[in-house]
Amino acid sequence: MPCQSILIVEDEASIRENLKMMLELAGYSSIFTANDGKQGLETLKTLPHPCLVLLDQLMPVMNGMEFLEAKRHEDAIAAIPVCIVSGVAQQPTSKNLYEHFLKKPIDLTTLLSFVRLYCGEPNPKEAAS
């Protein structure tokens, strides 16, 4: 089963929209977004075969670390890989809860290499370039 649905959990609307657009332009078609950890958790449970979560750290309602803690206790979604995309300089210490840490402002090539790692090569028909 090809696994290409990606969830972006980010409270800053412009970053959320840009990340979505970048991934779509790169050829990934099934991108979902959430404004905070709580919404992200609810969305993640409903996604068909999610392959990666791009997660901000500082968010209202439920922050990134709270999201990771809650996700860990949900068997159905616990194993979905997470890449933290954060403006916080210090990397979170509980490294077993996430796969990668990307510091903002992110580098597109690095981001796409992580996405490719977990979601496979993008669909060339979808790529805008």
Partner: peptide, 18 residues
């Protein structure tokens, strides 16, 4: 301040990437 600056910077750089 560093964190607050990083968010608008991300918007700038990702917009440029697009």
């Amino acid at each position: 301040v560093s964190h607050e600056i990083r968010n608008p910077l991300t918007t700038i750089t990702t917009s440029l990437d697009i």
